[in-house]
Design a protein around this nucleic acid. Structure first.
Length: 504
RNA sequence: UCCUCAAUAGCUCAGCUGGUUAGAGCAACUGACUGUUAAUCAGUAGGUCCCUGGUUCGAGUCCAGGUUGGGGAGCCA
């Protein structure tokens, strides 16, 4: 019996199998919170109602030991799942002495070292369920709209875009690289099948240490024949709406558990503002307001708020420390205040990072040079002004990938489109219409100093029945991070691979 | 690669301008309590102060170098 199905068997006797996520004890009574992957359930063991040996086992249960527990399902509004189990029988399956993750705040390094166990905690459980919903929902959107799943290779003989650093491996004595995108192969497959999408891991070897970078991440990359950049944007928007609606419908509990304010997700079901690079630059530099809000002045206001919040926290910490130092407090009150101080200090150091970063963002936004690609801070600056994702298209062709089509009306611009998630999250989708002019492509390949012979097959796609086509790549982890409003991508994937992190 | 911050008990953190035997809470362990929601209460035990070198009568504290980690730049989904 799974916990999520308990509502169907009220009053009946069932057997649950799972792990002890918490235990509380009173005289003659033990409360065991059991989790089985589908949910949480409080199991009540009363001394007078079970065998003496069973009560002893219940008292000896420790965090994360596994057990089979039988009992009667009773409705109880106070409980998380709405039901509890009055235990009649209990069997210990696997012991768990000294479980390292305690019921308290932990630092990120410790949690990452224990990622294999951290995944069992309720917050991670909720995030992984949302990740699953997002992935399944994307598949469903594409499958229901005539796309076919076709996978691109992971070993490649050459860099796709020639820009980012790749992981090199040995392929029977020849150098091979782990794929940084299935893009070019996607184009070939779209010419065979019409509309395809790929879903697989992607590797980038940059030594990035930021909250939005992973060395290994998962990407969905659709590619569509007979599709221009505007139809491409229609598909992106429709897919995003589909996925977000699905999460809102199926993951209410999970969103609530992680404390996600869903109003932005709800407004993200509306159409997304589409703007050119030119307009986005004006907004970043503060030359154009968004709904009466200016990028620069709103950042300055935020900085003031952050600074005020920090000093507020400092005085609260000092106050509580004084209370403890004065004595006269009961042990429980000291404990409460000490925990409060720890939490406040944690929050404070996060705010201090912001206080350090915001002035840099302001400077970088003010001094933004037209013609450059957006940096992480520029994306943060512009997306903070919106309550839904935005789409920025028509970029200076020099800063974008070689395969993007030029705007026929103004060849200075390439028809790339970036989808930037709101609330400061930034790029979650990158795509565009592909260049079909063989001459322009050859020019670009030379410009980027890429080995021409590696692209002969790619040029064939233009030589034999070339058609307008477009596609995009959606970073799963970045999508999950935004939907869950996580502080860092590393929580959006079971076992993150990033600079300095290969274990567990 | 560069900038910046940090490292003290299993965990989260105090430890002020260098000064006797390095502290608290949680967790663990022992006991008390019949409805708890991170339960509460009493007690016990727990330390290579990241490493190497230096300054000093004296270093957890100051200095230099290194290691590991956090945040950011570049790069990007």
């Amino acid at each position: 019996m799974y916990i999520q199905e308990l509502h169907t068997v009220e009053g009946q006797k069932v057997k649950l199998q799972g792990w002890v996520s918490n235990k509380r004890e009173g005289k003659g009574i033990v409360f065991v919170i059991l989790r089985d992957g589908t949910g949480y359930c409080q199991c009540v063991v009363t001394e007078t109602e079970v065998d003496g040996s069973i009560f002893e086992i219940a008292k000896g249960l420790s965090l994360e030991c596994s057990a089979e527990i039988s009992g009667t399902v009773v409705k109880d509004e106070r409980q998380v799942g709405g039901f509890e189990l009055r235990v009649t029988d209990l069997q210990l399956i696997g012991n768990s002495p000294n479980y390292p993750i305690a019921k308290k705040e932990h630092g990120i390094e410790f949690l990452m070292d224990n990622r294999h166990l951290w995944l069992r905690s309720s917050r991670q459980w909720a995030i992984m369920r949302i990740r699953n919903t997002i992935i399944f929902s994307i598949h469903r959107y594409f499958q229901e709209n005539g796309f076919m799943l076709m996978d691109s290779p992971i070993f490649t003989g050459n860099a796709v875009e020639g820009t980012s650093t790749l992981f090199e491996t040995d392929f029977y004595g020849a150098p091979a690289y782990l794929s940084q995108s299935g893009q070019l192969y996607g184009e070939a497959m779209a010419m065979a099948m019409g509309r395809i999408y790929t879903f697989g891991p992607t590797f980038r070897a940059e030594k990035s240490k930021t909250r939005r970078h992973l060395s290994e991440f998962w990407m969905m990359e659709p590619e569509m024949a007979f599709c221009d950049i505007f139809q491409n944007m229609d598909v992106i928007e429709e897919m995003m709406h589909f996925v977000i609606a699905d999460v809102l419908k199926n993951c209410r509990k999970e969103l609530e558990l992680i404390g996600r304010d869903i109003s932005v997700l709800e407004s993200s079901l509306q159409p997304y503002p589409r703007m050119t690079y030119d307009q986005a630059v004006r907004i970043i530099k503060g030359e154009e307001d968004v709904n009466g809000v200016n990028s620069i002045t709103s950042l300055e206001r935020e900085l003031q708020q952050v600074t005020a919040k920090i000093s507020e926290m400092e005085s609260e910490i000092a106050e509580r420390e004084k209370k403890i130092a004065d004595g006269n407090l009961k042990k429980g009150e000291i404990n409460f205040n000490q925990n409060k101080i720890d939490t406040l200090k944690n929050e404070k150091s996060e705010l201090e990072e912001d206080a350090k970063n915001i002035p840099q963002w302001i400077a970088s936004a003010k001094g933004f040079e037209y013609g450059n690609d957006f940096g992480g801070s520029d994306e943060t600056v512009i997306t903070r002004l919106f309550d839904k994702p935005i789409m920025v298209y028509d970029w200076p062709h020099e800063v974008k990938a070689f395969y993007l089509k030029r705007n026929p009306e103004n060849p200075r611009f390439a028809r790339g489109v970036d989808v930037l998630a709101p609330e400061g999250y930034g790029e979650i989708v990158g795509g565009g219409e592909r260049e079909t002019d063989e001459k322009l492509l050859v020019e670009k390949i030379n410009e980027h100093k890429l080995p021409m012979d590696a692209f002969e097959w790619y040029l064939d796609l233009r030589r034999f029945g070339s058609v307008p086509h477009s596609g995009f790549g959606l970073g799963i982890e970045r999508m999950v991070t935004w939907v869950c409003k996580l502080k860092h991508v590393r929580e959006s994937i079971p076992f993150p691979r990033m600079y300095g992190r290969l274990k567990p």
